[in-house]
Computed example of a mutant assay.
Amino acid sequence: MTSHDHSLLTASELAILYGSYANDTVSICMLSYFLEHVEDPDIKASVEYGLELSNMHIAIDKDIFAQEGLPVPLGFTEQDVNVQAPRLYSDEFILHYVQNIGIMGINAYSMALPKMSRKDLRDHFTQCLQSSAELFNRTTDISVEKGTYVRPPTIPYPQQIEFVHNQNFLGGWIGEQRPLTSTEISLLFMNLYRNSLGNALLTGFSQIAQKKKVRKFMARGAEIARHHSDVFGKFLDESHVSAPVSGDFTVMTTAEPIFSDKLLMYHTNALQNAGIAFYGESIASSQRKDLITAYSRLIVEAGEYSVDGTNIMIDNGWLEKPPSAPDRRELTKG
């Protein structure tokens, strides 16, 4: 190896490694439980593939930690899941959940890769990106074949190229608006779909959480997801765009603990933070003022919810501190 290969990890590389490790340990717990209950053999194969990828990622991460002399994060272990607990979600929900792992991985790793300096990490996260795309493609193929794929809306093809010549294209904050563009439709639909999935996930979490405060937090999250879905659906409906989010996201009635409250809180907050990032992307790609205002308002609501979740984690000693800069003021105290 050259001296460059031995360069210390940058703050960006540390942040991404530690975050990826925690997320993969959550995936291992979730997918291990799903594997015990999924009945459809095709969906089971996708769960097995997702679990295989997460275990592979963890093994590589641990090697890097060892090479650098870094402590391995605790993350989440078999102590955070009871795989023998009763079934909580339908096979179709499980398929959509695994598909969403692929989607989240594509987004996370594509953002992580440009922040990597060292070749070994670039190689690792390039493979993570490719495997996430493969997971998404496999689950999407299965969903299409089984007729459970939630297809985005269609609009008529344009007949000619047009240019915008009037500021009315930007619309106002209230009142009559122009029809949605294809980009705006795409973003509204994906945010509607993710919130519909999140509503089902958190409804299940609210049933199995052990602490009362955690149960209330999960129920509140499910209500927020329903509210956000309604907002996105209303925008689509006003432009007479069909939003066929009709997946069978069935949640069973079990209330037996399955995942630790610590895992439930971390998973929920991670999804909220990812959702805020998606809303930020939506603001950047939307041109109607009313859409930008709506996304901005929903970001604030999601952000407040995420802060409340972080406070619950801190109060219970569940929040692992990420690698941080030294506190120079503390070090200079006599």
Rank of each mutant, 00 (worst) to 15 (best):
T154A: 06
T25L: 06
Q130L: 08
P86Q: 02
G334N: 15
L135W: 00
L187F: 12
Y279F: 14
A112L: 07
Y266I: 00
R151L: 12
K146L: 14
A225M: 01
T10R: 09
A22F: 01
L187K: 03
L95K: 06
I64F: 15
T203R: 01
F249D: 01
L192T: 05
Q99V: 08
R297E: 07
P156M: 06
D42G: 11
I103W: 02
K213D: 14
K115E: 14
R297S: 12
S27F: 04
I58L: 15
M252C: 14
D261H: 00
S246M: 13
Q287R: 02
Q272K: 09
D308W: 05
D61V: 00
M111V: 07
E39H: 13
S54Q: 03
Y18W: 15
Y109N: 04
Q67N: 06
R122S: 10
D123Q: 03
A11S: 11
E13H: 11
S54T: 07
I142E: 02
Y279I: 10
P326Y: 01
N316E: 12
S282P: 00
V300R: 13
G247D: 01
S7W: 07
D120F: 06
A294C: 12
D141M: 10
S117E: 02
M30C: 05
P244R: 11
L197M: 05
L291R: 13
K212W: 06
L95Y: 04
G204D: 00
S246C: 14
M313D: 03
N273D: 13
I142K: 05
S286I: 05
L53Q: 11
A108W: 05
T140R: 02
G147H: 12
K44H: 10
E78S: 14
R329P: 03
D327K: 08
N195R: 09
R118S: 12
D230Y: 15
A209M: 03
P71G: 10
D40V: 07
S282W: 00
I142G: 08
I224S: 02
A222R: 04
N168R: 12
L298N: 01
R329G: 09
S143R: 08
T10D: 02
G280M: 13
I101F: 06
M252Y: 15
W173V: 15
K146F: 11
I60G: 02
Q207K: 11
P323E: 09
I292H: 09
A294H: 07
E320P: 04
Y149V: 08
Y109W: 06
S46D: 04
G233R: 00
A325G: 04
